[in-house]
């Protein structure tokens, strides 16, 4: 279990990195935290001809607020985000989701940009960003663009990134006042990828009715799934048990999560329904206590 040979570059600036990507695009892989890529390389299941290691680019590691939005630099480590007080306060869904990511050693090294670019449908952060209507700033020598979650995550381990593009940052809009959010998942062992999970946000109006809901599901399909008809169904409801239950049933309609040795499609559908119900219940409680 030793990796195959590869060429290696470790640029110190964004410009250098983009130059290298423009030159080697197709045959190279970007090395961010490496917590998903290096295991695959050790098994020789991934054998990139060249690695572009962006760990020396300090300018990509930051957390800042911009016009009320949270902007997270791509090379921000999970631990950094997990411990940021402003995140815990303004975007507690992210803090809660990160608590489910691997273990401390993984979170100390793994990066936010790496997680979204890897696009594992069983990963927590892509789903949390999906529930939060996040978008992704990407750049190449050809220019910059911002891609919404709905276009960014294409399929299993596939994003809308072109071979010469690099994720620069994640932008997360602020949650409205009166909102509550929750992240719930179940894995066979704590720290493993989820068998099923749900990231939800809810906004309550003054009259206690739901004004807005977002539901993103983990391990539900080839990419994070937004349960939009369930979201719609919750709008105007009082978020009582029966409306939450009905929305959870709606959320999993038509889903075909992949069966594997840890759980069949049928089991996973049931689990996703339960996780959605629990996340909604939790988020509703939190929304009520915040108003």
């Amino acid at each position: 279990m030793k990796p195959a040979q590869f060429e290696y570059d470790d640029p110190e600036t964004e410009e250098e990195a983009l130059d290298l990507l423009a030159r080697h695009g197709d045959e190279c892989k970007v090395l961010a935290g490496g917590q998903s890529l290096v295991p695959l390389m050790n098994f020789r299941l991934a054998r990139p001809a060249r690695l572009i290691d962006i760990n020396r680019i300090d300018s990509l590691s930051y957390i800042k607020r911009e016009d009320g939005r949270l902007v997270i630099g791509a090379m921000t480590r999970h631990t950094h985000l997990e411990r940021a007080a402003e995140v815990a306060q303004g975007w507690p869904l992210l803090t809660e989701a990160i608590g489910w990511v691997g273990h401390a050693q993984i979170r100390n090294r793994g990066t936010i940009g790496g997680s979204v670019a890897h696009a594992d449908p069983a990963a927590e952060l892509p789903a949390a960003f999906t529930a939060l209507d996040a978008s992704f700033q990407v750049r190449s020598k050809r220019g910059s663009r911002t891609i919404g979650w709905d276009h960014f995550f294409v399929s299993e381990f596939t994003t809308a990134l072109a071979p010469d593009e690099l994720v620069m940052a994640v932008e997360v809009p602020a949650l409205d006042p009166g909102s509550g959010a929750a992240f719930v998942e179940y894995a066979r062992r704590h720290g493993d990828f989820a068998l099923g999970g749900a990231a939800v946000t809810l906004r309550l109006g003054r009259d206690g009715h739901c004004e807005k809901a977002t539901i993103a599901l983990v391990s539900a399909g080839p990419a994070p799934v937004r349960a939009s008809s369930a979201e719609q169904q919750l709008r105007g409801s009082t978020l009582d048990d029966s409306s939450i239950r009905a929305a959870s049933v709606e959320a999993v309609k038509g889903l075909r999560p992949t069966s594997d040795l840890h759980g069949s499609t049928e089991y996973r559908i049931g689990l996703l329904r339960t996780m959605t119900e629990r996340a909604l219940t939790k988020a509703a409680q939190r929304a009520r206590s915040s108003t």
Partner: peptide
Amino acid sequence: LEEFSFDANGQPMSASFMDYLLPTSEE
């Protein structure tokens, strides 16, 4: 937790610690 599973061709599906689940302190 622990089980060595094989596909129909006899390929081991639990040949890593991601799929062969040893108990951790939390289990």
